[in-house]
Amino acid sequence: MIEWLNMDGDGIYVWPCYVLTLIVLIANVWVAKLQHASLLKRAAARARHNDARTEVLEEISP
């Protein structure tokens, strides 16, 4: 196992490449998911705001 990780000393070049790639690929998806959640939240807040406004308008109009 250690021998495999070490890769005759080349492990110090190989592993950083794979770890970095993994981090960047996961981060891309993670950021996209966070963004999606926050956009939905904002849209929901806007929808509630619009609803409240329609209700007020309905109340004041005879």
Binding site: A32, L39, A47
Partner: peptide, 26 residues
């Protein structure tokens, strides 16, 4: 997959005032 995810976000951002988005979140 990533581009589809990110495009969905772009669509939500650009269409946030549209009726279908309001209906979607309600």
């Amino acid at each position: 997959a990533l581009i589809l995810m990110r495009t969905r976000n772009e669509v939500l951002l650009r269409e946030s005032r549209k009726r279908w988005v309001q209906e979607l979140v309600q």
